[in-house]
Design a protein around this nucleic acid. Structure first.
Lengths: 233, 233
DNA sequence: CCAAAAGTGTTCTTTATACACCCATGT
DNA sequence: ACATGGGTGTATAAAGAACACTTTTGG
């Protein structure tokens, strides 16, 4: 028995990790933050940030810790996605991963993209390379979840700056859901919920009428949500 | 180091289990199949069937295996629910559980209820005792999932016999969703999907007009589902 | 003054809701 | 014949979809 193998159990145990799919939205595109693997297996391939679960933290804490350690991102929307347990999903041995997905206001984290030390990079969804492990599958499931969830819960705002315009919001929905929406009907519906706060401010420096800025009234939404309100698009 | 502690690792690992919330529907009530714990911790308390993940099986297989071993139930709808990872959720040490929920055609498994050897028993939802571990919390989350999912996917049929009547189906929805539905509107909507197969057979032996039997056309649904169809109530 | 995108209302169609009487069966 | 629950249609209200012109701004 190896000197280092000091944690022993009566039955074999899988290793437990978390991985986090990080979505951002910028330039009218959905983007993903990937990490280039420095070590084998899959050295040089891109993967979601993640790592082993510590014994004194739950999976949510682990996912947030790894997210911060590997990308500098913190205080963002994060939610458990699914747990992947295929026997051969990691060539090093049996590893179960509790996958999460995060929604990031990319504009606030653009700097991270150029941080060479961490080899983290934002990829447009249309240009995602083949990923390490079973991360391609995890991505497909994360996308399905994001598309399903955004249609009836106001998580889209997590991807936009605090102040955003209605055309930006519409563009976000159109991009993620891959549909075209009528501008008038979209505005009517969104504004009818009375959950956007007018910032009395408009986009300037553009060669056309600047769009008005709004912010999302999260407190009011949470109140309504308790009483059964659904934010449907 | 104990003789039996023969599986050793460089870093500590949590144990990994699956647990399965089993829903049934009978006598106009939602029911849960619970197992009485024979051993400490929580000896004598009721819990969901479950057990440790083997190294040569994935979590889906584990959940189905445990379900069969502890209750005799097999070939039923089963789906991953959520992974529970709180540090103190098991007094024996660090145990992560991948929770599942199953939907059972209770009428086919009534026998199990009386199987004393396994101490398994169906409990009406209104009479669930305090459960072992964090199973109360797991149950709350499973119920939320069931209610959310049944409203837009045809999983209710998994809880009814192959042949069922529309009043039975309506009763199921009313019970699970805790709403009252208009009989005519309910029939109109369900039948409009053209997914029920008329069995040309009616309930007999009742002191009133017997309701017609239908079965659910799962194949047709799956075809439609691929093309984006949603079974909404 | 032109180009570009923002902002704005109304009509029509579809879907959802509300509602009451007759029918079949066993006792 | 009566009690019980099953089966059926129509009218109204609400929601969703379709659609075109005017406004603001910078170049």
């Amino acid at each position: 028995m190896n000197e280092q193998q000091k944690y022993c159990y009566e039955y074999p145990r899988p290793a437990v990790t978390t991985d986090c799919v990080i979505f951002g939205f910028d330039e009218g595109e959905l983007k993903l933050l990937l990490i280039e693997r420095a070590l084998e297996p899959f050295k040089g391939r891109w993967a979601f940030p993640g790592g082993f679960l510590n014994m004194n933290e739950n999976a949510d804490d682990c996912a947030q810790r790894e997210l911060f350690e590997e990308t500098g991102i913190e205080n963002v929307f994060i939610e458990q996605l699914y747990t992947f347990t295929d026997v051969d999903r990691d060539p090093r041995g049996r590893v179960v991963t509790i996958a999460y997905y995060a929604l990031v206001k990319l504009s606030e984290y653009k700097v991270t993209a150029g941080d060479d030390a961490k080899k983290a990079q934002w990829f447009p969804l249309s240009q995602i390379p083949t990923l390490a492990f079973d991360h391609d599958r995890i991505l497909r499931i994360a996308l399905t979840r994001l598309r399903g969830k955004i249609a009836y819960q106001p998580i889209g705002f997590e991807l936009l700056p605090e102040k955003f315009t209605l055309p930006e919001l519409q563009n976000l929905y159109e991009t993620i859901l891959e549909v075209q929406l009528d501008r008038r009907n979209f505005r009517k519906k969104i504004l009818s919920y009375d959950l956007l706060i007018d910032q009395n401010q408009s986009v300037t420096g553009v060669a056309h009428k600047g769009a008005k800025y709004y912010s999302f009234d999260k407190k009011k939404y949470e109140e309504l949500s308790k009483r059964g309100f659904n934010f449907e698009i």
